[in-house]
Design a protein around this nucleic acid. Structure first.
Lengths: 120, 120
DNA sequence: TTGACGCATTCCGATATAGGCATATGATGG
DNA sequence: CCATCATATGCCTATATCGGAATGCGTCAA
């Protein structure tokens, strides 16, 4: 088995840096493919392919406008991602950067004051 | 070129569902590989491999404890992800489901009151 | 030492991605 | 109808993933 399809998930879709760039650009306004390609310094086929992925996961919509096709952001699919990652917020807050020292402190405190306590 | 390495990014690392499951489990407490494997219904080598990826991107730490190796969460790497996705929050709030109607409204308003405005 | 346990690593195969390049498709204007 | 602009698709290669199964390796106990 290979890696899960990029189109299987918002998680997988946004794993690609270029696709993330596209989404950021689309935050500003609807845009045709050529525009995006130029602004991001990639070829038009590249942009088209990435947009296809984004469309398949529903992060992007297309709207025909005469000769052009305007791509627009549909960020709703990002919400589950935000929520999932948000579930870890308390783990990077709480001065988590110095967890090791914190553990050391705890140990010392225990030795000084032999209260009985259980960790959860 | 192939897809970016799973170890290149937190974005890429958490694209894998099983790895996400692992991270969720580790929110509870440190755990040895076998535990995780059993609880998630995967083989031990599978779990080990996923943990390796998570370790390489710094989302997980290992601590030797006698015969065992305890894996623990280090969620700091998820913060950038949360922030990036958070940048889209206003796009899924604001009754985004009816964006089209909203755009229509804007157009009409413009015609009624020809203020000069520029979008950025 | 031998064995058992906990875990990591290796080899295998199937899959599909991303980029590059060429080309097909589609609508528009003479 | 033809040329042109805007976009999508097809083909190709290199690469790396994930799963499965087997095995390597280090630690601990007898």
């Amino acid at each position: 088995m290979a890696r899960a399809a990029t189109t299987s998930d918002a998680f997988n879709a946004i794993a690609e840096p270029r696709r993330r760039e596209i989404l950021v650009l689309l935050r500003g306004s609807e845009r045709p493919v050529t525009d995006l390609a130029r602004d991001l310094g990639m070829t038009q086929p590249q942009a088209s392919k990435h947009l296809r992925v984004l469309r398949e996961v529903g992060l992007v919509r297309v709207r025909e406008s005469g000769k052009q096709r305007l791509y627009g952001l549909d960020a709703r699919g990002l919400r589950p991602v935000h929520e999932w990652v948000g579930g870890f917020e308390r783990f990077w807050s709480e001065s988590f950067g110095r967890l090791d020292e914190y553990v050391q402190e705890l140990k010392q405190t225990r030795q000084e004051e032999p209260d009985d306590d259980d960790d959860q």
